[in-house]
């Protein structure tokens, strides 16, 4: 299943119908490389302050202008991408690993634990996440670690639920029932039957969660609860520079656009992943 999922996805990506998604994927790759290589790029120091040149518009020296301390906005957007994408990626990893474990375990734990655990998970999934994140960060204080931990934990129940549902349907398959009747242990079943069949659904859920986590990080940083200055992140830059839109409207718009294009690209790629997973949706 894993190989067919991947090959179908790659084939679809090549087709003309999905030009937008392949362009989006290419864009994401470029952004990822730029962000990862930011310290090596021949761009200005994102922390270099120039108080004689604050909030200036786009110019030859600063293509996207400068911020409230005269720092180069283009350079800060590229370096900010490291934080925004890095936090979202780490949070997805955390949510994915914990959520998958939780989901699979619940799936093999017997009906009583199942009922209670899923009821709790349903409640947490249904509640609006941002309020939970907001309280946690406001009370614990911002910072990179807290930020990743909070976002990761918040999206963990969603993973658990998706994985649990899939596990349950796998569990009911005939050859799994057969293996159980032959005396296969729970751990053997989880390793050999459940996990291999889960990769595709995990991939789709991860792409959805990645875009949510990006937006969550941006929203929290916008409110001042994310990474601390002078380290830039996109949401935080918009949050600070929106205070100066009457002096220089562009400064707040540029980092916002960076975030918007990345989320758009992630959504386009995610749509395609979903289509490949559910062929009937494609018509």
């Amino acid at each position: 299943m894993t190989t067919t999922f991947l090959s179908t996805f790659l084939r679809e990506l090549g087709s003309r119908r999905n030009l937008a998604a392949s362009a989006a994927l290419l864009f994401l790759l470029v952004v990822a490389v730029l962000s990862a290589a930011a310290p090596l790029l021949p761009i200005q120091d994102p922390l270099a302050i120039d108080t004689l040149n604050i909030l200036s518009g786009p110019s030859q020296a600063h293509w996207l202008g400068t911020d409230e301390l005269g720092r180069d906005i283009l350079s800060r957007i590229i370096h900010g991408g490291r934080i925004s994408l890095g936090v979202a990626l780490s949070a997805v990893l955390l949510a994915g690993v914990l959520g998958t474990l939780l989901g699979v375990l619940i799936g093999f734990c017997g009906p009583r634990v199942e009922a209670v655990a899923m009821r709790l998970i349903d409640v947490f999934v249904s509640l609006p996440e941002i309020f939970v994140a907001l309280i946690a960060l406001a009370l614990l204080g911002g910072g990179l670690g807290t930020l990743i931990g909070t976002i990761g934990l918040i999206y963990c129940p969603q993973f658990a639920r998706v994985v649990y549902n899939m596990t349950r349907s796998i569990r009911a398959r005939e050859h799994v029932l057969a293996a159980r009747s032959l005396g296969a242990g729970r751990l053997w079943l989880i390793r050999h039957e459940a996990l291999p069949n889960l990769y595709s659904i995990i991939a789709v859920q991860a792409s959805v969660t990645f875009s949510f986590a990006l937006l969550m990080e941006a929203g929290l940083s916008f409110l001042g609860l994310g990474v601390q200055p002078p380290t830039p992140s996109w949401g935080q830059m918009v949050g600070i520079l929106k205070n100066y839109i009457y002096i220089n409207p562009w400064s707040a718009v540029f980092p916002g656009l960076a975030l918007f294009f990345v989320v758009l690209a992630v959504n386009l790629v995610g749509d395609l992943l979903q289509d490949v997973l559910n062929p009937e949706l494609r018509k």
């Binding site: 409230e68 301390l69 911002g142 200055p229 600070i240």
Partner: peptide
């Protein structure tokens, strides 16, 4: 308030010149 974060970041850059590494912690 923006004046505090701005002041803090200039201060951070200033102190770096004499070898004092400042980490800024924004609090309520």
């Amino acid at each position: 308030l923006g004046i505090y974060t701005t002041t803090a970041q200039i201060l951070q850059a200033n102190l770096k010149e004499i070898g004092v590494n400042v980490s800024i912690r924004l609090v309520e």
